[in-house]
């Protein structure tokens, strides 16, 4: 289950669907589906606000093996991730978080956070300086 049909969300959804997984994508704007998804996208599209539990249930959160939340709001992703994990017991939950400090704080609370800023920074640094130690850098940017 993918929450948020932006550039990243739609690409993750289409990639996994093409690999044969059963994929449901949730967004609160119908336009996002039209703009971002292939017309032949084989998965399910659910229109609604994922902060609303009824929308999550309608999208099948109770049967989901994985939930990835990729909306534009860090806090929204944090909340959706925790609802999925604590309330609906989804086995694997990933949340995109742009603010590295917040990502680190919630990683400590047990949420799998994808810290976009650190990942980008790493890639840039490696592209510029050649293979460096990713983890040391991620740590450094978190402590900053």
């Amino acid at each position: 289950m993918i929450v948020g049909c932006g550039r990243v969300g739609s690409t993750v959804a289409m990639t996994l669907a093409r690999e044969g997984h059963q994929v449901t994508i949730v967004d609160h704007e119908a336009r996002s589906f039209q703009r971002r998804l292939d017309p032949e996208f084989p998965g399910t599209k659910i229109l609604g606000n994922a902060m609303d539990e009824d929308v999550l249930i309608r999208a099948g959160v109770e049967q989901a093996d994985v939930l990835v939340t990729l909306t534009n709001g860090d806090n929204r992703n944090i909340m959706i991730a925790q609802v999925a994990r604590e309330k609906f017991r989804v086995p694997l939950v990933l949340a995109r978080i742009v603010d590295s400090l917040r990502a680190a704080a919630f990683r400590e609370l047990g949420i799998e956070t994808v810290d976009q800023t650190s990942i980008m920074t790493n890639h840039m640094r490696r592209a510029i300086l050649g293979g460096a130690n990713d983890e040391a850098l991620a740590e450094a940017s978190v402590r900053e």
Binding site: M51, G73, N75, I78, M79, Q82, R102
Partner: peptide, 8 residues
């Protein structure tokens, strides 16, 4: 006014 912000 935002529940998610208050939670965080």
């Amino acid at each position: 006014g935002d529940d998610e912000d208050n939670l965080v």
